[in-house]
Write a protein that binds this DNA or RNA. Structure first.
Length: 490
RNA sequence: GGCAGGGUAGCUCAGUUGGUUAGAGCACAGGACUCAUAAGCCUGGGGUCACGAGUUCAAAUCUCGUCCCUGCUACCA
């Protein structure tokens, strides 16, 4: 019954971009949908703040690390707020509670932790070692960071991930640990079948001070990834808090495709080491391109989420990201596409439908809405879509209803019924329109909460209550931001 | 190289176990209407379903081959 949903926690090495926004929005839909079913929900997000890269970044801008992390974290908190994200928790890996509990987790994993020497090629950008073949293929330079790999030999603690490979495999294959979409499931199964090696989970303190101390060893700090994953437990108050006892395992964990391995191999291994059940579902979303180009600073096409919200509003942004970014695939954003979706679908189809219905009731019936039996639309496809995190399909289903309602209005022609003076029939038709809109609002609530609330406000009390302006006023031109963002960057 | 998934209307895609003239949205063209945010509704044009062969009464759908695209993974015995 209890429902626990998480996003991955963004690494605070740069400001939020639309990829972060996508993940926040998707997880938010799941949380809101669960609350709508009257389930007790904990929805957590937060920020991942340790590691050498953050320390370097802070040094670069001449700030104290903690202050830098504070500021960055604040930006993500701000993004969640701006997107109308309903998270119950916002955990930071620099929270005292997380740090303490992470050490408890480490101790509880002690039987699977041993000390060893790691020799390998390391990229400070990725904060990861790479295998020899990969390094060779990249000609000794990390393609992501344009930095040469450094040969490192160091004492590390290791986690016996290899021991758990068979059990992880079984959980994924059987579906007790479900991975969506299926293509990602196949992908990770392939990785696991080809063998999981034990992983290095600490770094010598002399090289890295910005991290959580390894219990009982002054000279080592936890590797940032290993520790960051623990947030899903520490946020609930593992090991003793009531929330932890009631809400673990997570119902859904939402992550991006780049961190599949961490969440579908390493994380399950850690949980098995702790003797805990695995999450029920891992939903893996794709990436967003801008005008079919990869987002990058050098191309100058990075779009701050706030720009979109400022230009079109929160729900328009949520709408585009949920419906026009495929839930099981990569997607593309452009101001032109957003503009078209906004005008055609939000303003013309939905907004205008609300408007014409309200206007007729006001002018024909002094705003009084009659009674109507609820519409008998089959919402199974909608529910199933949400169950499978197919947010795009879910909105398709809602829009079928919006279109259907517009057709109904044109077939019934309430304006003619009004002229004929059949007030009883008119009342029935208009009341039915309202029940349809209220159902649409209900379905929309997890996806576009603000819009749903407005529709419910207008029609929910038996009398049409006007709102200021219209739901989605048409926009004639794309905003200035469009020109800026679509200009070739330098 | 291996594994996986794709290549369907100008664009984005849907097409269940092979079965009637291959669908939707956007874009485009035309029409009837007027309650509404010059919105909505109706109609229409447009596809050798990547290519070649095969199985079948029948293939977008199954088999084999070829060419492209994407993702993961790998040259260690």
């Amino acid at each position: 019954m209890n429902y626990f949903v998480t996003t991955s926690i963004p690494y605070v090495n740069g400001p939020p971009h639309i990829g972060h926004a996508l993940e926040f929005i998707m997880a938010d839909v799941l949380a809101r949908a669960a609350r709508a079913e009257k389930k007790p929900v904990i929805f957590s997000t937060g920020t991942d703040e340790h590691g050498g890269k953050i320390a370097d970044k802070a040094a670069e801008v001449g700030k104290d690390v903690k202050i830098f992390a504070d500021e960055m974290s604040q930006q993500f908190r701000g993004l969640a707020k701006a997107l109308n994200i309903s998270n119950d928790r916002f955990i930071r890996t620099t929270d005292a509670g997380h740090e303490q509990r992470a050490q408890i987790i480490w101790k509880n994993l002690a039987k699977d932790i041993y000390k060893g020497t790691y020799v390998g090629l390391y990229c400070t950008g990725c904060e990861a070692f790479v295998t020899e073949p990969v390094a060779k293929e990249n000609k000794g330079t990390c393609p992501h960071h344009q930095k040469p790999y450094e040969k490192l030999e160091e004492e590390n603690y290791f986690f016996k991930l290899s021991v758990y490979a068979p059990e992880i495999l079984k959980a994924i294959e059987s579906g007790s640990f479900e991975i969506l979409p299926q293509s990602r499931k196949h992908e990770i199964l392939h990785v696991i079948k080809s063998g999981l090696e034990d992983i290095s989970i600490s770094r010598p303190k002399e090289k890295l001070t910005w991290g959580i101390a390894v219990p009982g060893d002054e000279n080592q700090v936890m590797y940032v990834w290993f520790e960051a994953l623990m947030n899903y437990l520490t946020v609930l108050g593992y090991p003793e808090h009531d929330d932890y006892l009631k809400f673990w395992p997570a119902n859904v964990q939402v992550v991006g495709k780049d961190i599949l391995r961490f969440h579908a191999a390493i994380w399950p291994g850690m949980l098995l080491g702790l003797g805990l059940p695995l999450p029920k579902k891992l939903y893996v979303h794709g990436f967003i391109t801008v005008n079919n180009q990869k987002m990058s600073k050098s191309l100058g096409n990075v779009i701050p989420p706030q720009d979109i919200i400022n230009a079109y509003g929160v729900d328009a942004m949520r709408y585009y990201f949920l419906r026009h970014i495929p839930a099981y695939d990569d997607g593309d954003f452009s101001w032109a596409k957003l503009h078209a979706a906004y005008n055609n679908e939000l303003a013309n189809e939905l907004g205008n439908c609300v408007q014409r219905t309200a206007a007729m009731i006001v002018s024909y019936q002094k705003g009084i809405i009659g009674d109507s039996p609820p519409p008998e639309h089959d919402i199974a496809a909608y529910s199933e879509a949400l169950e499978h995190c197919r947010f795009d399909r879910a909105l398709d289903e809602v829009w079928d209803q919006v279109r259907g309602l517009n057709q109904y209005i044109d077939e019934q022609k309430p304006w003619e019924i009004n002229k004929q003076g059949d007030s009883e029939h008119l009342r029935e038709v208009l009341a039915y329109q309202v029940s349809c809109l209220l159902q649409i609002a209900e379905l929309l609530a997890p996806l576009l909460p603000e819009t749903a609330t407005k529709i419910q406000y207008i029609f929910g009390e038996g009398v049409v209550r006007p709102i200021e302006g219209t739901l989605f006023p048409r926009k004639e031109h794309t905003p200035d931001a469009a020109n800026v963002s679509e200009a070739p960057g330098k």
